[in-house]
């Protein structure tokens, strides 16, 4: 057997710098004693400490809390929330409903796939312009490579204003984050996209990513921070569906199927 095989190095005790528990005694969380050092922690601060290894200021946490709060929509028609509602309608468990709905939030047209791409683009655009590139060229190049820019336009209302932008900007302004370099960049990109032939407005994803980058999160950290972003809107959808008679949430008749496949045929 090859002694260089990483699987052999992986054998033996689990090497971990993120922590572990000593039942009946204590727990370690990223090098700190959870119950001695972190017992009063704000949950979001602890969550971010787990992701980044850094603690955040109350002002930063207020903005990051507000990013979650202002996109929590208990609307069971929304695709991810619908998963929670349908699970409630079918009398599944609450945890299964919410876990599946959160996993669904890693969508390509909204949610986590957009979020990480958007944060990554803003970071690259910031670096490019700082190195002397023209922002118009950066935007044009991105559209050429990837056809769209996550965080601009919306799946259900491409050119509509995003109702979440005003409230989150107001919170950001109060905490001193409304004018960071990534926020200014996000607005400058919107101006280019609005004035060009694309007619796309900035949506919440771009502004939220910009605020998080200004707070110091990397795109990967931002992606993990956002995991529970839609969560608060989901339990109400599950609960309400659970309270209706079973299977009566969003029912479809046989005639609702708009069949466009082959005619009747025989095996």
């Amino acid at each position: 057997m090859n002694a260089e095989n990483p699987l052999i190095f992986g054998e033996g005790p689990l090497q971990s710098a993120v922590g572990g528990c000593f039942p009946g005694e204590r727990a370690v969380f990223r090098g700190r004693d959870l119950h001695a050092h972190l017992r009063d922690a704000d949950w979001l601060d602890l969550y971010l400490f787990g992701i980044t290894g850094r603690q955040h200021t109350p002002e930063q946490l207020k903005v990051l809390h507000a990013i979650w709060v202002n996109t929590s929509y208990p609307d069971a028609r929304l695709w991810n929330n619908r998963v929670a509602a349908l699970a409630g309608s079918a009398r599944s468990t609450g945890t299964l409903a919410l876990a599946a709905a959160l996993a669904t939030s890693e969508a390509a047209i909204y949610g986590r796939q957009i979020d990480i791409a958007c944060a990554d683009f803003l970071e690259r655009a910031q670096q490019s312009t700082q190195a002397g590139a023209n922002l118009d060229d950066v935007v044009r190049d991105e559209l050429k490579r990837n056809r769209s820019i996550g965080g601009y336009g919306r799946p259900v209302a491409r050119s509509a204003n995003d109702e979440r932008i005003g409230p989150i900007l107001e919170v950001a302004a109060r905490q001193g984050f409304a004018n960071g370099k990534h926020v200014r960049l996000a607005f400058a990109i919107e101006e280019i996209l609005l004035n060009g032939r694309w007619r796309m407005r900035m949506n919440y994803a771009a502004l939220a990513a910009a605020l998080a980058l200004d707070i110091g999160l990397t795109p990967n950290e931002y992606y993990l921070y956002l995991f529970p972003a839609f969560l608060a809107g989901m339990p109400p959808c599950y609960i309400e569906a659970s309270q209706r008679p079973a299977q009566t949430t969003l029912p479809l008749r046989c005639s609702a199927i708009d069949y466009v496949g082959p005619d009747r045929r025989f095996w």
């Binding site: 005790p13 689990l14 090497q15 710098a17 990223r30």
Partner: peptide, 11 residues
């Protein structure tokens, strides 16, 4: 088993 190199020990 686990090995935590930055374990602060009982606090």
């Amino acid at each position: 088993t686990i090995d935590i190199p930055n374990d602060p020990g009982p606090q």
